[in-house]
């Protein structure tokens, strides 16, 4: 897409005086495009390399995922092992991040806790994308009654206080990792539906799709060959931002004791433990480490998502 303009800049205006066709030629166009403050727009950013920050962020997310996956293989004490001989120990060689008020190793709790954030974050968005994304793709492409109904439904559901519903359902149905992932996953369906639908709709009306239709291509073929490849980047970029949102939601639930049942560690419930029993004054590490871990993970995921969004030239306000 960014190349469109460059292609146009050499052609157009074969005859005179036909200035009335839409899209002026090279220079006139450049003026329109380059008004003050001549900023580096998202389009310009799209062509820049992804940048060091992006790779650092990706590296951090990769490291967290890796540690969470191989946690069992690491020389870590059991995250729930209470060692009364080593209560509220500061960071040391023995306990790299120290221990909490029950003598549990904080590094181990944080690495195991990452599993919860990651599984819920990616799992829920996976569920939401599989259902909401598929519906959005079809709805945006097909249009018609189906689209009207689904679109209206998504509006109504979005007006529903999702947080209340999630809290209530989690509390009543059960606090297991799988159930929480499913509940939050279902809650993300309407938002992901809207994002993918908007993008699918935009491409369904592009010239190349219209051309493919006129040439008699089947719907399935158009969806897979023309629309899906264009929608996927948008879905990935927004999906990552949604992952960050879901991790926040899970953390909030865990903070309230409404995520996975104790004593399974998750970053939200470690933070919560850090604020209770006077730990804030006696051992601020219990709060600090998971807060820092959460901050860095969210920062990294948002950075990656935003950078991809720019690269794929998606407007920020699409949601």
């Amino acid at each position: 897409m960014p190349d469109d303009r460059e292609l146009r800049s050499t052609g157009s205006g074969q005859t005179l005086p036909t200035d009335t066709f839409p899209g002026q030629a090279a220079v006139d166009e450049m003026v329109v495009m380059r008004q003050e403050p001549a900023p580096e727009t998202d389009e310009a950013l799209a062509r820049r390399p992804l940048g060091l920050l992006f790779w650092l962020a990706l590296g951090w997310v990769g490291l967290v995922v890796l540690l969470a996956v191989i946690a069992n293989l690491l020389p870590l004490p059991n995250p729930n092992l209470q060692n009364y001989a080593a209560i509220n120990v500061g960071p040391s060689l023995h306990h790299l991040l120290g221990t909490d008020d029950l003598g549990r190793d904080l590094l181990s709790r944080i690495i195991y806790g990452a599993r919860v954030s990651l599984v819920v974050g990616f799992g829920a968005v996976g569920i939401g994308m599989a259902i909401g994304g598929t519906l959005g793709l079809i709805s945006g492409f097909r249009g018609g009654k189906l689209d009207i109904v689904l679109n209206a439904a998504s509006f109504v559901i979005l007006a529903f206080p999702a947080i209340v519903a999630v809290i209530a359902i989690v509390a009543f149905w059960g606090q297991t990792l799988a159930k929480i992932t499913i509940i939050i996953g279902v809650a993300t369906i309407p938002v992901l539906f809207r994002v993918v639908r908007a993008s699918s709709l935009a491409y369904a009306n592009r010239d190349f799709v219209v051309a493919a239709r006129t040439l008699g291509a089947t719907s399935t073929r158009i969806v897979f060959k023309e629309i899906l490849p264009n929608v996927i980047p948008v879905a990935v970029a927004f999906g990552l931002i949604a992952v960050a949102g879901v991790i926040v939601l899970e953390g909030s639930l865990a903070f309230l004791g409404l995520s996975v049942a104790l004593p399974t560690p998750s970053w939200g419930n470690i933070i919560s433990e850090g604020t209770s029993n006077g730990n804030l004054s006696t051992n601020p590490y219990i709060l600090m480490w998971p807060a820092l871990a959460m901050f860095l993970l969210l920062l990294s995921i948002n950075l990656i998502g935003d950078r991809l969004r720019q690269r794929f030239d998606v407007r920020e306000g699409l949601l």
């Binding site: 090279a26 220079v27 006139d28 008004q35």
Partner: peptide
């Protein structure tokens, strides 16, 4: 014709270009 630079010329005379 389009692209002959006439629009740029008018804006350049005014000093309106960035």
């Amino acid at each position: 014709e389009s692209g002959s630079g006439k629009t740029v010329l008018s804006r350049s005379i005014m000093g309106l270009l960035p």
